[in-house]
Amino acid sequence: MMIDIQDLQIRFGQGADAVTAVDGVTLSVREGESFGLVGESGSGKSTVLRAVSGLNDEWTGRIAVAGTEQGAKRPRGFYKLCQMVFQDPYGSLHPRHTVDRILAEPIAIHGLGDADARIVRVLRDVGLGPAFRFRYPHQLSGGQRQRVAIARALVLEPRVLLLDEPTSALDVSVQAEILNLLRRLRAEHGLTLVLVTHNLAVVANLCDRLAVMNRGRLVEEMTVEELRRGAAREPYTLQLLRASQGYDRATAESFRDYA
């Protein structure tokens, strides 16, 4: 197992204002697998991902990555193993750093040599030529920025890539490019992917297996094969599937809230 999560509980706030953002989530992702985590906004997908990545340290339960149990604080070596790509390509790159500086930073932190060659290689890997190396983020389009963010995650040669809605802020044509890129990188580097999204079609395109979340709980796990056949068991998942098929007056009428 590459990622093993058991009974993950995450709460925010105290006393009467406390929200349980993640409530008893148990899931595991095999090595080399591409796993989708879907659900509507606020269902706790990002919170799960941030706990796995080590950004959020207020959780209970068990998180193991590559067979090693993880605590709240991560050793530096963890970050070479597991990297993350964020949703908003406009917010995830430092506005005053060039692409070169952005990619050189992780190399410097981990004391890896050969920065020049690594940067050139990873830029080529994500489909950006050396011409992009000394640009600032404001000189890049949304899709190019997301490629830089992916390059930054890959520069440490991790085995796990956590993706938080990596294409939600992009146009469909650019989304297709990024999805193709992720598929190719996964094959070339043997990456394990965890993809958080609200878009079932994206999961169907890139993942092998998926879990559906609603209000902090894991509702259902299924294979993408089952998703494609529409073979969901839970009514909540079925509703999500129907809503993804486009607008239909009668269907909209049938929607209800699942607690």
């Binding site: 990545s53 080590g54 950004l55 530096r76 963890f78 970050y79 070479k80 990297q83 993350m84 964020f86 949703q87 908003d88 917010g91 995830s92 790159l93 430092h94 506005p95 930073e105 992780p106 932190i109 981990h110 963010a149 930054r152 440490l156």
Partner: peptide
């Protein structure tokens, strides 16, 4: 709390 600061933390900075 910007993502680029989170990203720096995730690199072990």
């Amino acid at each position: 709390h910007a993502d680029f600061i989170s990203a720096a933390r995730l690199q072990g900075a």
